[in-house]
Design a protein around this nucleic acid. Sequence first.
RNA 1: UGCCCGAUGGUGUAAUGGCAACACAGCAGAUUUUGAUUCUGUUAUUCUAGGUUCGAGUCCUAGUCGGGCAACCA
Length: 553
Amino acid sequence: MSEEKGLNFIEEIIEADLQSGKHTSIATRFPPEPNGYLHLGHAKSICLNFGLALKYGGKTNLRFDDTNPITEDTEYVESIKADVRWLGFNWSEELYASDYFEQLYGFAEKLIEKGLAYVDDSTSEQIAEEKGTPTQAGKSNQYRQRSPEENLMLFRGMRAGKFKDHEKVLRVKGDLASPNMLMRDPVIYRIKHAHHHRTGDAWCIYPMYDFAHGQSDSIEKITHSICTLEFVPHRELYDWLIKHLEIFPSRQYEFARLNVTYTVMSKRKLLQLVQEKFVNGWDDPRMPTISAMRRRGFTPESIRDFCDKIGVARRENLIDVGLLEFCVREHLNRIASRRMVVFDPIRVVVQNWNGPDTEMLSGENNPENPDVGHRNIPFSKEIFIEREDFMEEPPKKYFRLSPGQMVRLKHAYIVKCTGFKKDDAGNVTEVHVEYIKESRSGSDTSGLQVKGVIHWVSAAHALNAEVRLYDRLFRVEDPSTIEGDFREHLNPDSLRIQKVMAEPSLAGAQPGEKFQFLRMGYFTPDPDSTPGSPVFNRTVTLRDAWAKEQKKQ
RNA sequence: UGCCCGAUGGUGUAAUGGCAACACAGCAGAUUUUGAUUCUGUUAUUCUAGGUUCGAGUCCUAGUCGGGCAACCA
């Protein structure tokens, strides 16, 4: 099906590597740092890494890049594992960079012995100063000349805890004149007397990213190490270390990270929103995190489809959030059960009702899928309809209720408006209709053709519920590039809570279930629901041609 | 004013020296017991200037514009 689409540049590289015999199978990895929750940008990376292995018959490891004990925590490890699984992927092995601390330490000693690394006593300010600038070469210092023997002794002292934090670092002996700042003697080990979430207090020195990531790739024999564009300058160091350590030559390839309109995709900013309580936690349904999207009612299928549609390339991009919405609507349309819920009720009295107190009607659960059957819906003399579905003086092309006009009540009868009541303030308080007895859904012999169909709930049977209506988190398309503090551009109306009247079959709705509230949008029960008072999150609205039509006026 | 990366409709992505296409969005219409879904049609694209070539979105050179690089973060 998707065969029509050309290969992305990474697939091209892999196919070339497979064809040339450079590799007989491939290995990728997804390497999150356990210092935050996964977001949609990670989903792109997950789909890419796991997808590649699936497509070419290789394997993908889940590897936690846990080299900074200060910011990392097992809470994040657990959430990350849950999110990857929920997205529908299975890793080959669950690994941690910290598993390799001993091996990494050995690599460092090897570098020292080769005269390619040295212990530096400078402060970080001095190191930064001596590094020069992009247009100015760096300077050497006295420590750079230390012998391998002295360096080894000092480095062992570092490991043994003889020094305090910041007192010494281990640096690569690179090229202080390199146009690539990362090659100007990068720090590869620092002292941190800190408790690590897995190794506890076994270590007081920790490798830096550049001395852990590529080496872990190599240890795991990762063939294609895929990361985002900001790591492009690191590739030279990545290759340099592999060469001098004489280890398995993993190769790094970079792609452009995902950006989506009206949100932010940086762990730092998301953490800030959580800590400063702009949102109610990492899984607040307004967040672009995987856990938030799950809570909001997105499906793994729709997220995978989205990641597939946005493609993989090397140019910066800003994806219209409308594409994400399209993907989730497309999936939910196929699987969501239809229900009727009135958000802003107005009472309707069927004046000529002479049927039973309660008549049970039947409504299809999903017109896209007859297999999922029907549910019963009670009808009675008094019902609620949406306030906006009645207008005393309707505009042109208004298909709903207005004096003298007819509409169909979905799954029920055609009714004709015969009158209405207003209060002193001029608000309509009650609408009177007469129903057409022969027009019952499924057995309509009235021969009437009505353009409008509206949803309703029986007043006597209505279930009180709460809906949480989410809108974009930010008011501006690209909050990260706009001037000033990104928090100033938060959308104050990103969450609206409303009490609503639902059809009674919604009483037992369980988290995870997907519903379409007819004409209102897709919804899913929130874990905050309690027996008898369900809470629903709006995943996404329905497309609304009428709203668009009105906007034009 | 050093080095690196990038530039194709409004937004993304493809076209691998040979007819610039696909999706979303937009617009117009059809169908519809959800103004939903579905269907049909349609608008709109190769940053600039040189060069190579029978032929350039694609290769080369220069420029322009955008992004990145000077953490004991990843």
